[in-house]
Every structure is written in structure tokens, then in C-alpha cells.
Design a protein around this nucleic acid. Structure first.
Lengths: 339, 339
DNA sequence: TTGAAAGCGCTAACAT
DNA sequence: ATGTTAGCGCTTTCAA
């Protein structure tokens, strides 16, 4: 598994007729080296195809310029584009991204965190705030700098780059109730190990409970984020008596699955039943009727998470959490009940 | 940016009353250490919260157990799910994934390759076979083990885990022609720096040119993979005289955009015009009519790419490229011309 | 089965 | 502006 022997700093130093320190400087602090020397060194470096050895550098400088991210899965468009922005922002600062996925499982998450730290991550991006004590203890014991994305709350001890899922879900549910819906149901993500999914459900619960009227939340189903599951949950909800007039989904994939299934079942959306989504991914705009959904600033969150983490790693004491707002996007899948 | 000082091997050795070599062994080759000693060491390690320093380990052992991937973008569902599988497979072998994105730009790709190597990647996953000489030279000069994904050809010098884009596009185009279409147009991805997009276009060209009849490829437009671009290209193609009866898209996102735009323009798919996609992502099944498309085994490619790379890094000489087959998935967006 | 000790390649403090 | 040099924490012979 070894690479063939690559040139070392010393090889370059010898070939350029200077000391290793000068080479090191010309790479890391170029302005501290005379132009002429630098040019010569640069030439030699190219000729030899030299690149610094990672281990040596990490050992001597006590940093790797690698940060890690543990996300539920890259296969969910919502995380993929945020992660893309996170990576691009890091890259602009010469920092590289190590990724691992938890599959929404918190034991697995701890394992992955350990792995990333073992592999040299200087800091981490984690998704959501809820995690077992063992995980928090490890993070704390090892004094690991980390940012929490896709979630926001007021805890000043933590660094967040996210939005309030509870509030966003409440906004959506309020919009549904305002239109006159009184029998509402929900298809949410699996709440176990996923505090964002749980917050969205709680937000809907809260909105219905606090509504100045007689609205009722008929049922809440949890499902993994697939079109198929969304469709199945939809069918189940609609087979109840009385059926809901609006179904709030915790995710666009579930909602798109529901819309497609509605059509298969001969139900008209939004005439027979309204359906709402969450996240505003591509799927939401392509399905017919297009989904009324909460737009989540994925790219902004990814970028901000990177900035926060970089600042934190630079020991900038001014670093503070950033709260984003999810935005209600009205499209055709939501309308007043009864057509 | 430094971490607080963590315990070192020497701390553990002192506390356990043995030498550093024994600690090292008990971590890396446990069977070479006596059971009793090992137990004591393990206890001390836990008490101290020791984890090996990454730099020291990398320096001494000349390996990092990190591999890198440079993909065009994680925001494209096609790469996201493949990358997810790649990462999961690596993870099962204790290897961690460093990711970088090229944005379909080959200069940027070289830069990212350098970055990943600088950050300790033992090997790489790259997408597609075509790259500038400078990139190939670097890869070769540094003797970097790498696998090429999402592409396959017969070059025995290289390691591929992919499929033949040319052939797949040809299969799709043949299917279109078989149904009786004679005026065909294409919306492909930007070919500059993207050999897969180019191969798909060439495959269509080839199919039309070799068709035993009078089929004509009216026009080929290139567009970035967005719904909007797909829609715009569609509108442009349909405004020509004569208009195509079938439009082959190099990607499901473009095709979905085209289908949606068709509906906006009052055109019926497939009655007025057939549209086909490529990749078979979620979007293809949700849009109405659903897309006839080529299913690409993204997850399998990701997993295989990981296995190939791991085998290559283990200096297994038996490693050979794997060719996958794309599969034609017939749905409603393609039908004989003229309704 | 265990220990001693020689590096691995680099950075950074200090000296010039 | 450049050189000298002492580690950084670990793995790995070689010896015991």
C-alpha cells in the first residue's frame, strides 16, 4: 500500500542549494523568502514533482487542515447540496473535507465521529443537536471543535448554522389551517435519532393545538424518505374515515410520493386533498400539482457552517450561531378544502 | 487551532509500565501481545482517553487509510448516491473518504487532486477518463493509485468501475428510432471537460448515422444540468421548422425540465413530442408523463469503485475493471410519433 | 513476549 | 533573508 519513495524536503533543499527551513517557508509563508530564492525553489519543486508529506506536516504543525462532516446520508438532495457548499467554502481556505454518514443512527454517528477524529479531522460538522451522552462526552473530552447544521436553537454554548424546524413546520401548518382545513394529517420522517423530523412533527402538533378553532390532527405516520413510503403512507391516511383534507409532509420526497399516489388512486390534489412538502428540492417543482413547501436555505447553511467552523478553528472568539429562516413557497398542491 | 494536548503513546506506556512498542503492538497487532499485558494496556488507554495521533502514525507507517474522490458535484443526485455507496464501502474497511469537487472543470480537477494528495489520500476515485496531460503526468509521476468511475472502456492500463456511455446512448436512440421517429434532436450536458456527456451525444449521433433509414438528427444543444436549462433548450428545439418528434436528453434533470416546459407550452408528451432522459433518478418517476430513461447502476458503481481501489491499495495484482450495463427503462414519455 | 532506539518528513524557535 | 536544530508521536527493526 506504500507509495514509491517521493522526494522529501531535504531532496528539494539539496537540489536548490538552500536549507529545508527555507523550502518550508517558501511553501507556507512565501513573503518571508526572497523572490529569487523562491523562484529557484519553485522550479526545483516542479522538476522533482515534490509535494509535502502529509504525516510529517501534520505531526510537526499539529494540524491537518482537514475537517470532517457526519451527515445522515449524501443520497438525500437536501444534504447533498448543503455539503457541496460546505466543501466549496472549505476548499477556498485550503481545508479539505472528510465525510462519513450515520444513516440517521446515533450509535453509528459516534463511531463515525471517532473515525473522523482518528483520521485527523481538526473539527467537525454535525447535523442536528440531539445526541446521546456518550457522544457528547467524547466530543467534550477530546475538546473537539464542531458546528451543528440544519438546526438552530438559543443555546449559546453551541455553534449553529441552521433554522428552527419547529417554527418552520408551525408556519406551514398555520398556512394550511388559515385556508380552512380542519382535518389534518401528517407524514413525517422517522423521529428516532432525527431531531429535525421530530421538531417538524412537534411544530405541526403545536400549530393545531393552538389554533383558535376546532382543527384536529387525525394521524401522524413516520416513514423513511422515499417516494414509495410517501405514497403508501398517503394511501393509508386517505383510507381512514373521516379522511384528512390536508396532509402535511415532513419532506418533499414523501410529499412527491403522496402526490403521485393520489393521482394513481384517482384523487385530485388539491381538490380532494391538499398536500404540502418540506425542503423545496427539485422534486417539488416538477411534480404536478407543484408542491407548496418550506424552502430551506441549504446552500447558505452549508456555506455558513464552513465559515463558522473555520473561524472557530482559527480561535476567533467572535464566532456566533447563525439562524436562517425557512420560507413558505406557495404552489398548487395546497388550496382551501373541498376544491 | 491546536487541540489541547492529548495523551501520547509514551504517556500510556509510562502509566502501564511497558514500552511504547508494546502499546503500539497491542493496538495494531494484538495477538503479538500477551493477554494480560493487553488487558492492562486497554484499561489505561480508556482511562486516559488515548487515541493515536494521526500525524505520527501517518509519518511512521507511510499510509493514512484515507482515500479521496474528486467528483463534478455532489449536488447532482447521480453522483451523490454513488458517492454514498463508495463511502459506506470504504468505511466498512476502516478507510475514510476525502471529497472534493471539480465543477466539471479539468483545471480545477487537477488542483483538487493535488489538494487531496497533499492532505494524505492514499488513492483516488476520479470520474471519467478524459483529462489533460498535466493531470495524467501528475498522477503518473506521483504514482498515485486511482480508479475511474462512471465510465468504462477497454484500456487494460486503467481501472474502471463504470458503464459505456456511448453504447447506452446508442441503445436509447435506437429505441427511439425503432418506434418510428425520424426527426430527432438532443439536449446534452456541456461536453467541455465532460467525456460522459460527450459520449452520450456521440452515441446518439452514431445511432442516427447508422440507422437503416432516413432519420435525421436536427440539432444538438448543450446545457448545464438544471430544470430551467432543460426547459429553455426544449422550447428552442420545438420552435424550429420542422420540429423534432423526439428529443433525447443526456440527463433526467434536463428531460424533466423539458417535460414541464412542454406542458407550459401546451404541448402533449408523448403525443406531440417524445422526450427521453438518462440516469433514472427520482425525478424521472415523478414527472408526468414519467420518463423513459437509461437506468445507471449508481450504487453498484460506487461500491465497486471502492472495492477496486481498496484491492489496488492492498497491492492485489488481480484487480480488474468492472463494466456495468445501463438499462433502458420504458415509461410514458416515449411513444411512436404523432400520438 | 517485550524493550531500546532509529528514524519517518516536517515546522518553528532561535541564531545568524 | 536564511540556516541550524530540536522535536512532533508513531512504527518497526533488532536485541534481549
Amino acid at each position: 500500500m506504500n507509495k514509491t519513495d517521493n522526494p522529501t524536503l531535504e531532496d528539494v533543499a539539496r537540489a536548490a542549494g538552500v536549507s529545508t527551513a527555507t523550502i518550508s517557508r517558501s511553501i507556507n509563508e512565501p513573503d518571508k523568502v526572497a523572490q529569487k530564492t523562491r523562484d529557484r525553489i519553485c522550479e526545483v519543486i516542479n522538476k522533482l514533482g515534490y509535494t509535502p508529506n502529509f504525516g510529517g506536516r501534520a505531526l510537526a504543525s499539529k494540524r491537518t487542515n482537514i475537517v470532517g462532516a457526519v451527515i445522515p446520508t449524501m443520497a438525500n438532495a437536501m444534504f447533498a447540496s448543503g455539503l457541496q457548499a460546505f466543501q466549496e467554502t472549505l476548499s477556498a481556505s485550503g481545508v479539505t473535507l472528510l465525510v462519513a454518514s450515520s444513516g440517521y443512527n446515533s450509535d453509528h454517528e459516534l463511531e463515525q465521529i471517532r473515525t473522523l477524529i482518528t483520521h485527523g479531522a481538526d473539527g467537525l460538522l454535525l447535523i442536528g443537536a440531539a445526541r446521546p451522552k456518550a457522544t457528547m462526552d467524547f466530543l467534550h473530552l477530546r475538546n473537539i471543535p464542531f458546528v451543528i447544521g440544519w438546526h438552530y436553537d438559543n443555546d449559546p454554548q453551541r455553534l449553529f448554522a441552521g433554522f428552527d424546524n419547529h417554527k418552520a413546520a408551525q408556519v406551514m401548518c398555520d398556512a394550511v389551517l388559515q385556508l380552512g382545513h380542519r382535518r389534518v394529517a401528517m407524514i413525517g420522517g422517522i423521529t428516532d435519532g432525527n431531531d429535525r423530523a421530530k421538531s417538524r412533527i412537534d411544530g405541526v402538533r403545536h400549530a393545531v393545538a393552538n389554533f383558535a378553532g376546532d382543527a384536529v390532527l387525525l394521524d401522524i405516520l413516520e416513514a423513511d424518505y422515499t417516494l414509495e413510503n410517501g405514497g403508501n403512507a398517503f394511501a393509508k391516511l386517505m383510507s381512514a374515515t373521516p379522511a384528512p383534507t390536508a396532509i402535511i409532509c415532513g419532506n418533499d420526497v414523501l410529499a412527491a410520493g403522496a402526490v403521485v399516489r393520489a393521482s394513481d388512486l384517482g384523487l385530485k390534489v388539491p381538490d380532494d386533498v391538499s398536500i404540502t412538502g418540506f425542503d423545496d428540492i427539485n422534486l417539488a417543482t416538477v411534480v404536478r400539482p407543484a408542491l407548496t413547501t418550506m424552502r430551506v436555505p441549504q446552500t447558505d447553511m452549508g456555506r455558513s457552517a464552513a465559515r463558522l467552523l473555520l473561524a472557530r478553528l482559527a480561535e476567533n472568539r467572535q464566532v456566533r450561531s447563525i439562524e436562517f429562516e425557512a420560507e413558505l413557497i406557495r404552489r398548487q398542491s395546497l388550496a382551501p378544502p373541498g376544491g
